[in-house]
Write a protein that binds this DNA or RNA. Structure first.
Lengths: 241, 241
DNA sequence: TTCCGAATTTGCGTAAGAGCAAAGTGCCGC
DNA sequence: GCGGCACTTTGCTCTTACGCAAATTCGGAA
């Protein structure tokens, strides 16, 4: 894990080559990357730490280097729902891209994480000065929009079992890591979390996971989930899902 | 209704002053507007006509002048779900803004509609040449993203009655027109349509509307809905909704 | 005006999943 | 190594809203 190798203060040469591979910066040359990094602040977040809160003035935009960020919203009655997960290499909190002056959701570190950030005033500058930056950022946004659309469709038409299966698959695809028994979701997830992603209750999720464990589709310990038979989950996630 | 006044071929001076008020063009001067209009194609769509289909190559982006466009998605099993409604003055089908080369959803005229359109290759030009165009477009996109987020939250946490109430209110806000008895939704809506927006069945929607009609909250004829007591719908739509 | 089809209403049985309650179990810090 | 807390499991009941079926009505076209 990056955090262990590099600590949390200084950006060094390796970070540079790392950034070069990330979509938003993939089209830039070394000097440009250097200029961008010089203006960045880097910060480490403990698990559970809040990066920014819903409604707060959007002062900075962020790039996740390592870890996982959960973007959540809270309903008037206090229930939380998880909008999406951010993985390494993704921009987040990009309110300036949408001409917003306040964050529309809360971002919390789902696991120990490392992120860069820049003041929002630099956004237009990046867009103007760095070719491909805008395009790549908006491509990401488009993908995110598409994913949200899929979530809506899912919530509206599928039943709970299918939604939970799809949710596991999504997490596996986005941040699965290969282990002996199958593919492990790379960040801690509770039943409660899954219920907040799929619009159900932790009880129902628990029952489903228990059943799937009996059938050999998943293995789980507390807050860790390993999918041992992804193909069977695909079947469960629905027709042509 | 605009269509009756101007027909469907020629853009005239009145259109110009109309466009000036629309967000994407609000910051431009007369000459710029003229230039933009010169490159536009205008087209009329009958109710039910398809503007573009999901998966089709995105060749043009559109601006709705009059009417209502329904953006829908079809699930593998053939169910339709309505992603959002576009009202006059809004851009739609702006795949180029998200670096997509194919439309992510289908757009159908919910009522007789009039729209301008431009080839996608003009998008970068508009963004570059016309100050504020990009900002305003992305502001719209941000709002749309926020609305989708709300829909997800709603679907995940609220129950059917609240969702349907919220759905009616949303339509009333977006395209309500004042009539004697209250506020009428400006385009034809079936119970089926509402069920496709709220993730329920037409039966349940019908039952709810019947009940609300008995209580004097709405009045409806076939495909037309008038909300007579919006405040009571607000209460029904949930705590602090 | 009459007729047809689409849209709507309503009843009834039922399944899915929520809600409540309570017991169990791993994990972390001390 | 121990205690406590957070997370998990499981049983039971009950409500919601879905699914199916059938009757009804409205509105436009001929």
């Amino acid at each position: 894990m990056l955090l262990r190798k590099f600590g949390n203060r200084v950006l060094n040469k390796l970070d540079e080559s790392l950034l070069t591979r990330l979509p938003p910066f993939s089209m830039l040359d070394r000097a440009q990357i250097r200029a961008i990094l010089d203006q960045a602040a880097s910060r480490r977040y403990d698990e559970g730490a809040t990066v920014f809160g819903e409604g707060m003035p959007a002062e900075r935009f962020h790039l996740l280097l390592d870890g996982t960020i959960r973007v959540i919203r809270t309903t008037p009655t206090g229930e939380q729902i998880i909008a999406l997960h951010i993985g390494p290499g993704q921009l987040f909190g990009i309110a300036p891209a949408l001409a917003r002056d306040t964050y529309p959701a809360t971002a919390v570190a789902a696991a120990e994480s490392l992120a860069l950030s820049w003041p929002v005033r630099l956004w237009p500058e990046f867009v103007q000065r760095y070719d491909g930056f805008a395009t790549e950022s908006y491509r990401t946004l488009g993908a995110r929009l598409g994913e949200m659309q899929s979530r809506i469709t899912e919530l509206a038409t599928q039943q709970v079992e299918q939604r939970v299966a799809a949710c596991l698959l999504r997490m596996v695809n986005q941040s699965g890591r290969k282990v002996d028994q199958g593919i492990e979701i790379a960040f801690p997830v509770t039943r409660q979390n899954i219920s907040e992603m799929t619009g159900t209750t932790l009880h129902t999720v628990s029952r489903l996971l228990s059943a799937w464990e009996r059938e050999g589709i998943v293995e789980s310990t507390r807050r860790r989930i390993v999918v041992t038979a992804p193909h069977r989950l695909v079947l469960l996630s629905g027709p042509a899902g």
